[in-house]
Amino acid sequence: MTSEIIDKKVGARVFFKCEHLQKTGSFKARGALNSAVLAKENNAKGVYSTLYSLKQIAHSSGNHGQALAWSALKIGVPCTIVVPKNAPSAKIDGMREYQANIVFCEPTMESRESICAELAEKDDKLYVDPHNCVSMINGHASIVFEILDQVGEHIDSIFISVGGGGFASSVAFLIGTLRPDIEVYLVAPEQKELSNLLENGVQCSVSTLNTMADGVRVAHVGSLCEPILRKFCKKRVLNVKEEEIKDALKLIWTRMKQRVEPTAALAFAGVLYHKPNHIKCPLVVLCGGNVDADYIIN
């Protein structure tokens, strides 16, 4: 998608890759489908994963959980999701619609890890981590082939929101390998201190970020993702303020009429407020659109 009004406001020709219109409402379907296929090929008895604490999934519909449940149903393997007891019913219902088996845990890291360990040992299911997972990272790479086929001759850069880093590292690696002339920019809330990690090896001091972009509240990128991001995007990190995310979200909602989630607006905020002057044709990945029906931009 494109928007003449946004082009004028940004001062560049901006392309939007609409992953919020993807199956289950986010890019997560790509990696999840790959994971379900591999589970079936390897004769696993199913796939399982977790949602994190309630604080980390508020306002979204559990993108990873829904994507994995849909993919497992599509491929024909059982799916189990470990969910905190205090998770909103809307999140649970979304996964149950795809016939996922919901296992409740206490809203603590210890309880979640304990139940996951039991599932792995007892049921012989393949664990699919939302971020730090080879099958997820490899599956996400399908977006790169689409982007290059659709607008590869028109763009000079890609702007992508960064949480755990699975999606970003996938895009950064494949673009860096196939089209190094296209610059990949990592957009993150300023609290994440991603530049400090990639340049100095210093991790963020907190584990969860306080940001409206709930899909990237995980503060640390995965161990598989970090070296990839350091190699390809070390000097291309954009730190965004909360007000900038909010402004970007309003602009997409009102001018493009696309109800994306705040995490998708984060990537656009990088273009809107922090685009390097030499970038003339950026592509923004609108990573997801799972936002509660009653969510209001304050």
Rank of each mutant, 00 (worst) to 15 (best):
S195F: 07
V14D: 08
V187C: 13
S3E: 03
K122A: 09
K275E: 11
L54R: 12
G62W: 11
K235R: 12
E193Y: 02
Y48E: 04
N200V: 09
L119G: 00
S60T: 12
K280V: 03
D129R: 05
G65T: 06
G289A: 11
H274N: 06
S60W: 00
E183Y: 00
A29D: 11
Y295C: 11
M109W: 08
H220E: 09
N290W: 10
R13V: 11
V285C: 08
G165T: 14
C116L: 14
K45F: 01
I6L: 00
L238C: 03
A69V: 08
A219S: 14
G94Y: 10
E153H: 03
P276G: 12
G289I: 15
G139T: 07
G289D: 10
S170T: 02
L38A: 14
C116A: 13
K235M: 02
E190T: 12
L68P: 03
V171K: 05
Q99E: 12
M1C: 08
K280D: 08
H278Q: 15
I147K: 02
K122Q: 11
Q191T: 11
Q99G: 04
V240W: 05
S111F: 15
N290F: 06
F145K: 03
V37T: 06
F15I: 08
R255F: 01
S142Q: 03
T24M: 14
P282R: 09
Y98P: 06
V218Q: 06
F145L: 03
N101A: 11
R255A: 04
L224E: 09
V14Y: 08
V271G: 09
K257N: 12
L186I: 15
M256G: 00
P262T: 01
T24H: 09
V202R: 03
L51A: 04
L286Y: 09
I115H: 05
C225R: 00
A36I: 09
S61Q: 15
M212L: 11
V47W: 07
R230T: 09
N86Y: 15
D129E: 12
N138E: 10
V221K: 08
L178Q: 05
G152K: 00
T50Y: 15
S60V: 09
L73R: 13
G288T: 09
E121F: 05
M1D: 10
Y98E: 10
I252T: 04
F167A: 10
S71Q: 01
V187W: 06
V77Y: 07
A120G: 03
E244Y: 10
G270R: 08
M109Q: 12
N138T: 12
K85R: 12
S89G: 04
L178S: 07
K91Q: 13
